[in-house]
Amino acid sequence: MSTYVYGIARRAHRSLPDGMEGIGDPPRPVRIVAEGELAAIVSEAPEGLRPKRSDLLAHQRVLSEAGAAGPVLPMRFGSIAPDDEAVRHVLQERAGHYVERLRTLEGKVEYNVKAVHNEEAVLHRVMAENPEIRAMTESNRKAGGGSYEDRLRLGEMVVAALQTREAADAVELQHTLEPVADAVSVGPESTGWVANVSFLVNQDSAEQFLAAVEEVRKSHPYLELRVNGPLPPYSFVEPGPSEPAEATASASAE
């Protein structure tokens, strides 16, 4: 029976989520596989596992629970070992590295910050910053919207100004929050965000970090910020580059 791995913690971790409900339907109970100083949080791997919503949630829930009581190295979703023995082998073989990572990440959590522009508010801002755009908007309006060329020209200028703002806001956001974080990781590129950045934050300075986020909200009222955290340090477990999804084999292939 193959073994699904959620994360790696110290054996001395105060509260490993032993017995908690894990992935699968019915949920497979979470177990601990210990080796030396380390412990892997695992469960049985359901056959034909796919990235279903309920399983992603379960993966995240188990890690959040474990992370609340001490440092955990979260695995990327869908990591499956042939059996418990293989997990033990990995823990033994790379013990030094994992112990070092756990020490580095002790007391630290990830906060993911995403920003989008509020369209109406950012357009007001663009108008205020660019008298030319404002003048053209007014003249187009007087001309009942303007000719096709007029509208195209105005739109082009607005889009250029918005793109400049997007880039500037992403940089400003990062620069404002960087000083209150231990490390920064630009998040996976995904649809529709002006910025998507993860910050590694010391649990003790979480309040300061959130206060800095509030500052950005106040100074950039046209920016919508979504903060998610505290999270297990997904973006900070490995300094090296991550494997692309295509390179990984299918789980059902055993």
């Binding site: 193959s2 791995v5 994360g7 790696i8 596992l49 796919r50 990235p51 190295l73 979260p74 695995m75 990327r76 979703f77 869908g78 990591s79 499956i80 070992a81 042939p82 293989a86 082998h89 990995v90 990781s185 996976p188 993860s198 997904y234 973006s235 477990v237 490995e238 991550s242 494997e243 999804a245 990984t248 084999a249 299918s250 789980a251 292939a253």
Partner: peptide, 12 residues
């Protein structure tokens, strides 16, 4: 994101 261990298989 998250830890990837090459000795383990990953779900497609």
């Amino acid at each position: 994101r998250g830890l990837v261990i090459d000795a383990f298989v990953r779900v497609s």
